[in-house]
């Protein structure tokens, strides 16, 4: 029984990752400080660093298209500030 339950659970679960990054024109002071620190540590080949956010999202849905739509909605309604940030959704499971 337990095994069956686990199987069902897996079937209805889709996992996505969302990467949120600052848009190209937006200043990223945190990224800049990290960049400068790495440079001062001797990482001479380093060209540039931009810092972002990463979310792992599980959706109780077995239709991938529907699930992706839901994740997109989550991004645009809360997770991402579209004025300054871009996002990329990738499927994990």
């Amino acid at each position: 029984m337990a095994k069956l339950f686990q199987l069902n659970l897996k079937k209805n679960k889709l996992k996505f990752s969302v990467t949120v990054t600052l848009k190209k024109d937006v200043l990223d002071p945190q990224g800049k400080v990290v960049e400068n620190t790495l440079m001062s540590m001797g990482m001479v080949n380093l060209k540039s660093i931009r810092q972002g956010k990463f979310f792992e999202i599980e959706v109780d849905e077995n239709d991938q298209k529907k699930a992706e739509e839901k994740v997109k909605m989550m991004c645009e309604k809360l997770l991402v500030n579209l004025i300054i940030e871009d996002y990329k959704i990738s499927k994990l499971i």
């Binding site: 002071p29 400080v33 004025i83």
Partner: peptide, 16 residues
Amino acid sequence: TETGLLKGTLLRNKNL
């Protein structure tokens, strides 16, 4: 700004 009642946004202070 997060509600959209005012446009634009407030970023981290330049000097962090």
